[in-house]
Simulated scan of single mutants.
Amino acid sequence: MHNTHQIADLPSLRKQKILLLLERDGKVMASELVDHFAVSQDTIRRDLGELANAGLLQRVHGGALPRPKDTGKDYFTRVSETNEIKMHLARLAASRAQDGQIVLFDSGTTTLQIAQSLPRNLTLTAVTSSPLIAVALAEHPHITVILAGGQLNPATMSATGHEAVRLIQGIKADLLFTGVCALHPQIGISSLHYNEVAVKQAMLDSASHVVAVTLADKLGASEPFVVAPCTRIHTLITEQSVAPGSVESYQQMGIEVVQADD
């Protein structure tokens, strides 16, 4: 970024420029914006906060990301929208499943696509708290499906509560496929929904190997409710086009990072 002193004291123009930089780069860092506009950290922090409150970007530690494209959309709307990148990531994840395994499927549209991407000849036992994932897996002739029950969360279309947690705690799985609302090197895995935290934690505790699948805009982001540290993930599958430096911190934790070819 290059210094732009002439607009440093014009807040409205500065915020417009921040949005343009965000659109161009896919991410903005507060420290770089301070240098770019020759203003204080407090000024940039205030600008980012005002833009976030207006719903124009998503605040993350040290900067900001674009608002997720599915913000405000219900589960079925998100399921119906085709995303070629997400489908490609789902196929990469599905290739990790092996015959004879016990596999946990977390809730979410990404894990639903993973379930739909499994080979038809694969033989395994699948455990999930998502009725829609259970239905998708039931179409596979060689997959035994165990559905955890409990109170249904309409936002995620998954079961929550003590019943679901107890069932998952009683299973020792070989593999967990999990989508993530947000993943931050320091904050960890976090969720937008409090009532799904316990189920996600139980799944992480019950799996020998955890595969997390996420688009680039979830990296470096955070949501209100922390699930677990990043080190609970063994393999992270994400897209090739990520902001510079987005994956190195996860690799330094010993996480295998797989970036899909564009």
Rank of each mutant, 00 (worst) to 15 (best):
M1W: 10
H5Y: 11
S12Q: 15
Q16E: 14
K17S: 07
V28W: 12
D35Y: 01
D35T: 02
D35N: 11
H36V: 10
H36N: 05
D42I: 06
G49W: 00
E50P: 00
A52V: 01
N53R: 07
N53C: 00
L57I: 00
V60R: 12
P66F: 01
P68S: 03
K73A: 08
S80G: 13
M87V: 03
R91T: 01
A93W: 15
S95Y: 08
D99T: 15
Q101V: 07
D106C: 10
S107Q: 07
T111H: 14
Q116A: 15
N121T: 14
L124F: 07
V127L: 02
S129D: 13
S130T: 14
A136I: 04
E139F: 08
E139C: 02
P141M: 14
I143R: 07
G150Q: 04
G150C: 02
M157A: 11
S158M: 00
S158H: 03
G161D: 06
R166G: 00
L167G: 02
I168F: 03
G170R: 09
I171W: 03
D174L: 09
V180A: 14
A182E: 10
L183T: 10
H184P: 03
H184E: 12
I189C: 14
S191E: 05
S191N: 10
V197M: 12
V199T: 15
Q201S: 10
D205R: 07
A207N: 04
S208L: 08
H209P: 02
V210H: 00
E223G: 04
V227P: 11
C230P: 00
R232C: 11
I233P: 08
T235N: 03
T235V: 09
S241M: 14
P244T: 13
P244E: 12
E248R: 05
G254H: 11
D261V: 10
